[in-house]
């Protein structure tokens, strides 16, 4: 794009981000503050993920952008266009073809490979913020690995509901040391993070934090021995491709209680239908 650097950000900003990313990789799950810039998209709409992608992406990359698992949701389209325009990179909707995948709220169903990087857009990087809003205090809690309050919260849910009732952004322990927000992916996706072959990068623009999970790293969803973590999905088959294992969206089809369930991962669903045809 004329008048702007490759991938929009200037080189000094990229260096700042890149240094933060390397530290993030060296301390899995630990949030690194960084000098997030105002982007031409609003805070809360993926500016952290965009800054991470912009500092990582190169001419040889193929970019996939999804929101809610879909390539065609408006914000995914908007972000994909931003990089097509500012970096001129190839884009794809096929998970297997992508070298960099930027995502909001889902991990693709197709297992990622060691040749891929997944960049998560993170609205709230601090897993403890609902228990303690002061980031000065939560920083101290991370330093001391003082995560008792989170276990108490989970235990209170067990006492109240008979089970842990967190559905998304389900907290995980990374590398046995840092409690981490997986971003608002459904708890269904949490197990995909564990020992994933791809490098996982997380960007929170408004909160100005970056963190990372290197490949093959332990990512454990918090639970109790007698109340183990459970990854829920709607107990149906996809109405389009018939998959009984993928994460499903519920689509309301009329105002009389009619509904159907379809894959949230649009590329996964389309690929299955292509194969079946």
């Amino acid at each position: 794009m004329k008048g702007y650097n490759f991938a929009y950000l200037d080189e000094q900003t990229k260096r700042m981000l890149r240094r933060a990313l390397l530290k993030a990789v060296a301390i899995p799950g630990h949030q690194i503050p960084f000098g997030a810039r105002e982007m031409p998209l609003p805070y809360g709409w993926g500016t952290g993920g965009i800054q991470v992608t912009a500092s990582v992406i190169g001419r040889g990359d193929t970019l996939k952008v999804i929101d809610q698992g879909a390539d065609d949701t408006t914000n995914a389209v908007s972000i994909r266009r931003f990089f097509a325009k500012t970096a001129g990179v190839r884009t794809t909707t096929r998970t297997a073809e992508a070298t960099v995948i930027q995502t909001r709220h889902r991990i693709p169903e197709t297992p990622l490979t060691d040749a891929q990087i997944i960049v998560y857009q993170v609205p709230q990087p601090e897993p403890l913020y609902k228990l303690e809003p002061s980031r000065t205090e939560t920083r101290r809690m991370h330093a001391l690995a003082d995560y008792g309050a989170m276990h108490v919260k989970l235990y209170e849910q067990v006492a109240r509901y008979g089970q842990i009732a967190i559905s998304y952004d389900y907290p995980v322990m990374v590398n046995g040391r840092h409690l981490m927000a997986p971003s608002p992916i459904p708890a269904f996706d949490n197990p995909k993070m564990h020992r994933m072959k791809a490098l996982q990068l997380f960007g929170a623009g408004r909160e100005k934090r970056i963190y990372a999970v290197p490949p093959y790293t332990e990512v454990v969803s918090l639970d109790f021995e007698d109340y183990p973590f459970r990854a829920g999905r709607a107990p149906h088959a996809c109405a389009l491709c018939g998959d009984t294992a993928s994460y499903l969206d519920e689509v309301v089809t009329d105002d009389r209680g009619g509904r159907m369930f379809v894959c949230s991962d649009t590329n996964h669903c389309a690929t299955r239908r292509e194969r079946a045809a």
Binding site: V25, A212, P215
Partner: peptide, 19 residues
């Protein structure tokens, strides 16, 4: 090529520390 050589060297660094 300052922009693209830095990018590709950074990716090497990122992979080196990630693996």
């Amino acid at each position: 090529d300052p922009v693209h050589d830095a990018q590709s060297s950074f990716r090497a660094l990122l992979q080196a520390l990630a693996r």
